[in-house]
Structures are given as structure tokens and as C-alpha cells.
């Protein structure tokens, strides 16, 4: 080795652009700062939501004993569970056909149809669904919300299930067939167990989408059925107390918990694909 100390290298790093670190940092600050503010303001002591007046947990207490909030939460839960179950079953069946049924006429049209609710702007879906219920004279309420939620939850349940199926080795099913399993037995003992994480992931997405939905629910809810987002919206509109920050924080926590669980389930799923 040469004796002289190595000189400091200026070093041209390929693919590096000056400032991109700071830009990314700024990006994440922009993305998370509002949520941090929201959580912080749920501990606001004052009577007005936006104006910070000191730390307190009293609004948490107020929110949890509020009957209206409890009712809204219960409604949200009932709607989300019903919509999730129906949407997940429909999506699983459709995904099995579209990912495993081979090529057939109308395949891409069917795919477009199933994912249609993703493309149409929510407000258009909302007023169209309202018009539909109006024309058939359907009473607006819990049931109308469940139906509307089921429809737009289908693609959210569908996509993770299809991804799972497409990552799955078809040899497994052929091997089952080779070992004397009929179509149903193959599905029951091979496809379904491997598919299960995909179904769980799809159901979780559907659930969170239903719980979070606002616009469609707003249009098809009628008078009686208030969900949590509708309640929050109402509170934002009528001059607001930190109670709304508290519920919002709780909703945030629910979403984050679900999506984190979803992330881990679908990441674990990757290991079964066999590279």
C-alpha cells in the first residue's frame, strides 16, 4: 500500500441527484404532518377544534360517552361487515374465474366490469345510485347503504385475491388432479388454503374502504342511518369542538391498524409464490 494518506474523493455517484434526499424528506413531512397535527389536536383542551389551548384528554372521555357517536360507530360496523362479507364472496368467485378460467370471450369485458367502480368518480356513482333507489322507490337507510357499499367494495376485495391467484403455481392444482382429487376437492384442499391470505387481505381492504366511505354514504343514507364519517362531516360543518379531532384520530388509528395488518399478510403471501 502506498504510504500517503488517501486523498478525499469528491466522488461522482451515478443516479444521484442533488437535493433528492431533502425533497423526499419534505414529501414525507407533507404526507404525515397533517395527521400528526390531528392527533395532537385531539388532546386540545379548548372548546374550539382549531385553536390550541392546552393539553387535556377530556374530549376523549366526552367522545366515548357520546350516544350519537356510539350509534354511528355501530352503524358503520354493521354496514362494513355486511358489505365486506358479500363483496368478498362475489370477488373471490369472480377472481377464480378470471385468474384460473383460461381465456374466453368476454374475459376482459368482465374484468372491466368488476373493476368499473374504481374508475367512475365517486360523486357520479353516488348520485346514480341515489337516482336508482329513487326510481324503484327503495327506502333509504341501512340497507341502501349496504348495497351501495357492496358494489364499490367488490374491486377492492377482487384485486388482492386475483394477485394471489396469479402468483400461485398452477402445477399445484394439476398435481392435486393427478392425485385423484376432483374439481371441488382440488379447490377445497389446495386452492382455497393457499388463497386464504389473499381473501383475508381483500376482505380487509373492502372493510376499510366501507368504514371510510363518505360521499356515497352521504347520498344514499336517508335520515336515520348515520355512519362515523357522516357524523364527523356533520360536526365539521357545525362549528366544531375537539371531539371531532378525537373521533378522527380514532378512525385514523383503525385504518392504520388494518392497513398495517394487510401489509404484513400480503407480504407473507409473497413467500408462497416460490420464485
Amino acid at each position: 500500500m502506498s504510504e500517503k494518506t488517501p486523498k478525499k474523493r469528491k466522488g461522482f455517484v451515478l443516479g444521484y441527484y442533488p437535493g433528492m434526499n431533502m425533497w423526499t424528506l419534505f414529501f414525507f413531512v407533507y404526507l404525515y404532518m397533517p395527521m400528526v397535527v390531528l392527533v395532537a389536536y385531539s388532546f386540545n383542551d379548548g372548546n374550539r377544534a382549531q385553536i390550541w389551548q392546552g393539553f387535556s384528554t377530556r374530549w376523549f372521555y366526552r367522545a366515548f360517552i357520546n350516544d350519537d357517536i356510539q350509534n354511528a360507530a355501530l352503524n358503520s360496523l354493521i354496514i362494513a361487515v355486511c358489505a365486506t362479507v358479500v363483496a368478498t364472496v362475489l370477488a373471490t368467485l369472480a377472481a377464480l374465474v378470471l385468474a384460473r378460467g383460461g381465456e374466453f370471450r368476454g374475459r376482459s369485458a368482465s374484468l372491466g366490469m368488476v373493476t368499473l367502480p374504481l374508475i367512475v368518480p365517486e360523486i357520479a356513482t353516488a348520485v346514480a345510485t341515489l337516482s336508482f333507489f329513487a326510481i324503484i322507490g327503495f327506502q333509504l337507510g341501512m340497507l341502501s347503504i349496504i348495497i351501495a357499499h357492496t358494489v364499490f367494495c367488490i374491486p377492492f376485495a377482487f384485486l388482492p385475491i386475483r394477485a394471489r391467484l396469479e402468483g400461485m403455481d398452477t402445477d399445484l392444482e394439476q398435481a392435486a388432479g393427478d392425485l385423484y382429487a376432483n374439481a371441488w376437492e382440488t379447490f377445497r384442499f389446495v386452492t382455497l388454503p393457499i388463497l386464504a391470505p389473499g381473501i383475508v387481505a381483500g376482505a380487509m381492504l373492502a372493510f376499510i374502504i366501507s368504514v371510510d366511505d363518505f360521499i356515497i354514504t352521504l347520498m344514499v343514507s336517508g335520515a336515520g342511518a348515520t355512519t362515523l364519517p357522516l357524523y364527523i362531516y356533520g360536526m365539521i360543518r357545525q362549528g366544531i369542538t375537539p371531539e371531532v379531532n378525537v373521533i378522527s384520530t380514532v378512525m385514523l388509528a383503525i385504518s392504520i391498524a388494518f392497513i398495517t395488518a394487510y401489509w404484513f399478510i400480503s407480504a407473507r403471501g409473497d413467500t408462497v409464490k416460490g420464485h
Binding site: 397533517p34 390531528l38 364527523i232 371531532v244 378522527s248 392504520i256
Partner: peptide, 10 residues
């Protein structure tokens, strides 16, 4: 995936 209403409200 978090509630859009809540995020805009913040």
C-alpha cells in the same frame, strides 16, 4: 387508505 374526510379535515 386512511379516511379521506379526516385527512382533508386535518
Amino acid at each position: 387508505w386512511t379516511n379521506q374526510l379526516v385527512r382533508v379535515y386535518s
